[in-house]
């Protein structure tokens, strides 16, 4: 948190302006998985501005039909988070041509429904990834590439990279490899389609339901929560 925010906080606490804060935005303590108690201040900590809410799927055939459409139209956010992103260009070019599978790249999170975490995530990137993820509209899916997302991979002992992605956001599909080949990535898309069609791709709702736990985990590693004035 930067100086300004600290100052603002200090001022706020002296006066009684805090009562203007909505109850769900009030500072509170949550219990992290390791038992420690972490303070969460939603106004500063939740990038998306507010706590995401569970958005219930439709019922019956309608949802099935929509799921089919979602599965056949996977728009991937073009955010190369790690080395695996070097295999994205081959995927989208003549050799592998993922367009055939209904996979397209989108440059903005608002229009994407799939996030490829291409390998390791440094804490600095994790912060941006979380923000991007929260910006993506529900339903959204996460594909995790390679060892690094499963259990830290090569960088298991690095001070800068997280080890398990599923602690910080819901993941739908894991692809083994370091880095996975484009073919494996395509197989991952096929698997993701299966998952979506069977109605199991509810990561967004999972995230909303367990929001506090995910936030506590994120908070544990991301020390500096002040977001630069990104706009994308």
């Amino acid at each position: 948190m930067n100086e300004l925010l600290k100052k603002a906080e200090a001022n706020a606490s002296t006066k009684e302006e805090k009562s203007f804060v909505r109850p769900e935005d009030e500072e509170r303590e949550v219990i992290a998985p390791d038992g420690s108690i972490i303070k969460v201040n939603p106004i500063y900590d939740y990038f998306s501005g507010e706590k995401p809410s569970v958005e219930k799927p439709n019922k019956g055939v309608v949802e099935k039909f929509l799921n089919w459409a979602r599965a056949e139209s996977i728009w991937v956010l073009g955010f190369g988070t790690g080395c695996g992103s070097i295999e994205i260009p081959p995927l989208m070019t003549p050799r592998f041509d993922a367009f055939r599978f209904g996979v397209q790249m989108r440059p903005t999170p608002r229009q994407s429904n799939a996030f490829i975490i291409s390998g390791y995530l440094s804490v600095k990137t994790l912060k941006r990834v979380i923000r991007s993820y929260e910006q993506m509209p529900s339903p959204k899916y996460v594909i995790a590439l390679g060892s690094c997302t499963i259990n830290g991979g090569m960088y298991y002992d690095s001070y800068s990279t997280i080890n398990r992605l599923d602690k910080y956001m819901p993941v739908d599909v894991y692809i083994a490899g370091c880095m996975p080949r484009p073919e494996a990535l395509l197989a991952g898309f096929v698997k993701l389609k299966e998952i979506i069609k069977s109605g199991k791709g509810e990561g967004a709702n999972l995230y909303a339901e367990n929001f506090d736990e995910y936030k506590a985990n994120q908070k544990k590693v991301i020390k500096d929560w002040n977001m630069p004035d990104y706009n994308w």
């Binding site: 739908d172 599909v173 996975p180 998952i195």
Partner: peptide, 12 residues
Amino acid sequence: EYTWVDADPEVF
């Protein structure tokens, strides 16, 4: 062989 895709991270 290089393709192993799973939704469960524990199987790896």
